[in-house]
Design a protein around this nucleic acid. Structure first.
Length: 208
DNA sequence: TAAATCCTCGGGAATAGTCC
DNA sequence: GGACTATTCCCGAGGATTTA
């Protein structure tokens, strides 16, 4: 089901969002839908500032909400998933969300939002928004997702890397410093080496 | 080769600006 | 006026370069 809220903004929104991210999330919605739940199907809602992909069925018990990026998925519909991969509609196992987040970072978009619901699971992709207009939670989540992406690339989060991800100027270095500190306090990331000096401070996701 | 110096980076603290 | 955010200044740490 496709629901469009604000049709006049549909084109500008869709074209402003990376095609790769949209394709991956659409394929993901189809692959992971729970066919045991009758009377509902994946729903895509397009708003002026975001697109929401809502899937019937809750998150698989083996999956953790903050470990969706870069982990091997357990598809509810493996046959469908294999077909999608065969026809290159979606990425290889485990790289789907990783590709989405990487694309989002490349374009400097707000972080992708994963929302578990009563009997469904929602993924929200936001339209471009400046750092100043992001909420504190979104900033910390962007920080965490960047740390995960860096870790999956055998790299670490630094002030510089996060500043580049958020498309911030060098003058805003201290804002990034503060954000990193808040993400550490929130328990989303941790210092790689607590014994080293402050220069070249590196950070990892909290679960490493 | 070792010491001195310079440069870059990360972070703390103070201050200014903005919004409610 | 208070809370939050952004900016500026300053300092320490460590790598890179220069010099004796």
């Amino acid at each position: 089901m496709l629901r469009v809220v604000g049709r006049e903004q549909l084109h500008s929104l869709v074209y402003s969002l990376p095609e790769i991210a949209l394709r991956e999330l659409l394929a993901n919605a189809l692959i992971h839908q729970d066919f045991s739940i009758t009377g509902s199907s994946p729903m895509i809602e397009i708003y002026a500032d975001r697109i929401e992909f809502t899937n019937p069925g809750t998150l698989l018990p083996s999956k953790r909400l903050d470990r969706l990026i870069g982990t091997t998925p357990e598809s509810r519909n493996e046959l469908l998933a294999s077909s999608f991969r065969l026809y290159r509609i979606c990425e290889e196992r485990g790289t789907g969300f990783q590709k989405v987040v990487a694309t989002i970072e490349l374009f400097g978009l707000p972080p992708v939002l994963f929302t578990p619901m009563d009997n469904a699971f929602r993924v929200t992709l936001y339209a471009p928004r400046k750092f100043a207009n992001m909420s504190q939670m979104e900033r910390i989540e962007a920080c965490y997702q960047h740390a995960v992406l860096q870790y999956l690339s055998s790299k670490t989060l630094t002030n510089t890397s996060l500043r580049e991800r958020l498309k911030l100027h060098d003058k805003q270095r201290n804002q990034v410093t503060n954000l990193i500190g808040e993400a550490v306090v929130a328990g989303r990331i941790k210092r790689k080496d607590t014994t080293s000096g402050s220069k070249f401070a590196e950070y990892l996701p909290y679960w490493v």
